[in-house]
């Protein structure tokens, strides 16, 4: 499965440059990226702070920017978070749709640029749709909508579908302990380590679909949280799932970060989601300087 790991940053990046929210963007991880603008463009960078510079000078995140032909754009290092998103005004990155999507699935080698990550000398095609005229006004996301990433993440979860496969103490352990992200963090999932989460009878279930945010506990009793690039099917117990409002945070977890979980209900989770959408729709209505 494919798509942006942090769909909040993806949407905001597009809104800031006047694109439809789901236009294709670039996802940049800790590995970094250096590229040259071959024509003038309006862009925005959101998500993790990966030391984004234009011609060697730090450039603002969560804001629309104009780059000129020949400008050097670089992501080099990491101040906070794990993944940054770069949008281009005029409809975003222009690659053919595969299975109805412009996303890249590097596991299956499908979509995007030949189903792979970008490499040296790639030219990123962008759409040529009319650009919204901002009359030179820079659009910026209001501060209260900008997420802050530290090295500790607090994620709210709905228990299930297999919470009954765990001992009562095990669920308490899961909800009260701090887990650390191991080095195995990628677009498929985050392997965590911490106090063991003990099953009643075993970790195996009959294979069923896996959702974005699912927290699987296999035989070794250590949780794995699935991200957007997850496999579609799995045969291990899932103790819970991260709520939609907190999924963008999950995508910014990097190796060594600490994670705690808090139980919530489906109804509370939906209320949080509605509040966040209200904030976003207000923001979409106005231009910010």
């Amino acid at each position: 499965m494919a798509g942006s790991a942090d769909q909040y940053s993806h949407r905001i990046a597009n809104i800031l440059v006047g694109n439809p929210e789901s236009s294709a963007v670039l996802e940049i991880t800790l590995m970094g990226l250096k590229m040259k603008a071959i024509k003038e463009a309006i862009i925005a960078v959101t998500g993790g702070d990966l030391n984004f510079t234009i011609n060697g000078v730090l450039a603002p995140l969560w804001s629309s920017l104009t780059v000129k032909e020949g400008d050097i754009l670089q992501f080099n290092g990491c101040k906070s978070g794990c993944r940054a998103y770069l949008s281009i005004a005029g409809g975003g990155v222009s690659v053919p749709k595969v299975l109805g999507s412009k996303s890249t699935d590097t596991v299956g080698g499908i979509g995007g640029m030949e189903g792979r990550v970008l490499k040296k000398d790639d030219i990123i095609p962008s759409n040529e749709q009319p650009i919204q005229d901002f009359k030179g006004i820079r659009r910026r996301l209001p501060d209260h909508l900008i997420p802050e990433y530290t090295n500790t993440f607090h994620l709210r979860v709905v228990l299930g579908p297999q919470e009954n496969a765990f001992k009562e103490e095990a669920i308490q352990t899961f909800l009260t302990s701090t887990y650390k992200a191991t080095k195995d963090v990628n677009r498929m999932g985050c392997r965590l380590e911490g106090p063991e989460i003990e099953h009643i009878a075993g970790a195996d279930i009959i294979s069923e679909g896996i959702f974005f945010g699912a927290i699987q506990v296999p035989k070794n009793r250590q949780p794995i949280v699935f991200l957007v690039g997850r496999q579609s099917i799995g045969g291990y117990t899932k103790i819970g799932g991260v709520i939609t409002t907190d999924l963008p945070k999950l995508a910014q977890v990097k190796p060594g970060d600490s994670i705690t979980f808090e139980q919530t209900t489906v109804e509370e989770a939906h209320e949080l989601l509605r509040e966040k959408e209200k904030d976003l729709s207000i923001m979409k209505t106005y231009s910010y300087r």
Partner: peptide, 18 residues
């Protein structure tokens, strides 16, 4: 029917696989 996170539902049959 069981919640699977806050945006999915797992619907399951307690039957043999056939």
């Amino acid at each position: 029917y069981k919640p699977a996170g806050d945006s999915s539902i797992l619907m399951e049959l307690e039957v043999e696989i056939n």
